[in-house]
Design a protein around this nucleic acid. Sequence first.
DNA 1: AAACCTCCCTGGGGGC
DNA 2: TGCCCCCAGGGAGGTT
Length: 281
Amino acid sequence: MPELPEVETTRRGISPHIVGQILTHTVVRVPQLRWAMPDLQLLAGATLTHIDRRAKYLLLHMQKTAESGQMLTLMIHLGMSGSLRVIPEHTPAQKHDHVDWCFANGQCLRLTDPRRFGAVFLFPSDEVNSHPRLAGLAPEPLSPAFDVAYLTCVLKARQKNIKACLMDNHLVVGVGNIYANEALFQANIHPETPSGLLQHTQITRLHHAIQSILRAAIDAGGSSLRDYVHADGSLGFFQQQYFVYGRKNEPCRVCKTTIISLTQQTRSSFFCPQCQAQTPA
DNA sequence: AAACCTCCCTGGGGGC
DNA sequence: TGCCCCCAGGGAGGTT
């Protein structure tokens, strides 16, 4: 599913084709994804000035008219199966193609989402920083604010296991179930370790693992479910490189020990009991 | 406040 | 072969 690297890959993939273009009209084929669709006709005639990303949200900033300078932000979350592609206008829509944003250059940004966990928001751009979906989020994991001191501070203050901490958007953003499992493996940390018991060296390794895994996945063009598609339509390929995710009962790629799975906070965790030995109490 | 659970949705895969 | 059931996922919102 799209985690931070896939969203960033999408941002980079679509931007060159539509930034600077005037949006002529929008075609909406479903009344709602996760929530009711906002009135996207408000964007007719607006110019897409730039595209940002915050956590797993894409932020498309639109200037309503040159005279007024009024800015609107179209915010898109891809959920677990969403994808965005730039295609020629009038390309026939498939079953799960829910929204088209059509631009004056004949290109069309198409949102596809079979499982409909995605979401679309529209609001004045000056509300970005205070928007309820964005205001409480942790710092960007690849920004200077996300340093070892920050991670130490938030982990020491919590009472839950480290896997749950990595999945908590108030502490870390952009890391979903796949990369949480992979980061803990790379850092040799058992997923059930209480975050407050982590040693400084472990937190340092975890911090490095989170950043290096996200960077590697961005460099690789993002990983995916089977149905994830790049902005240009080619398939992602980083999923070939998983060390533990989805590998229950398979041998560890490092030590050959059998990978174990367990359920934490209703999510599947995978780990190597040898490489990620339980921290002594 | 923090931790934990439930729910939204659909396609794919396993079991029979 | 076909059908049914369960599972996967992010994160909002509720409960404890």
